[in-house]
Amino acid sequence: MAERRFESAGGSRQRAAIRVRVPARDSRTGNYKCSVEWVHSGEKELFELWGIDSMQALQLAIRAAGGLVKGDEGDLRWVGSDDGYLGFPRTYPEFLPKALLRKLERMIDREIAAHTRKSEAGHKRRQRKQQQTRAGWRKPRPGTMPPGAR
């Protein structure tokens, strides 16, 4: 169903991959399983995650895939990414109390909003600077007089 490939961070040709298979319904129990294959260091490991429905099985499989690659975080690079992020966001256990989950979500939302405001303010400053430069306005260099001030 899905695959993510990795390269060695050290520059060697070593590669790794994580594969998530399509959830399948078990006819005996009615539950769903989703398999995750972790291929690294010349070995293949297969894990089965079970859920009440296909969505839960898939969510658990993706969470497990992130946990598997996290152990090799310093040694791997997601193909196309140079900042060390392996492409699996942090998830939280489903057994946490609803009130705690909501509190965590509010904290994350506040941090995202603060980051967004800061990023937008920087973007607006850069735009103003570009517009001023295009209009011919330039900030005087230290120790010089602006034209017409003499």
Rank of each mutant, 00 (worst) to 15 (best):
V79F: 01
Q14Y: 04
Y85T: 05
D75A: 12
A99I: 05
G66Y: 04
A99N: 11
L49Q: 10
A16P: 04
T29G: 07
H123L: 05
E37C: 10
A64M: 13
E7M: 08
L49W: 02
M55E: 15
G136S: 07
E120N: 10
K124H: 05
E120F: 06
A135I: 02
R125M: 02
G71S: 11
R110W: 04
H123D: 06
R126T: 04
R25P: 05
I112M: 08
K129C: 07
C34S: 11
G10K: 11
R110G: 07
D82H: 08
G71I: 02
R102A: 13
E105H: 13
D75Y: 02
E73P: 00
Y92E: 07
D72I: 00
R19A: 06
G66A: 07
S27C: 06
Q127A: 15
G66H: 07
I112A: 14
F6M: 07
R126N: 05
I112F: 09
R5Y: 08
R102W: 05
P97W: 10
R77I: 06
G11D: 12
M107R: 10
G84W: 05
D26E: 13
L76E: 01
A64S: 12
A65S: 13
G66C: 08
P89C: 11
S27T: 11
L96Y: 14
W78R: 03
G10A: 08
A99Y: 06
Q132C: 03
R128N: 04
W38F: 15
W78T: 01
K70F: 08
D83F: 07
P97D: 15
R21V: 02
R128A: 00
K124D: 03
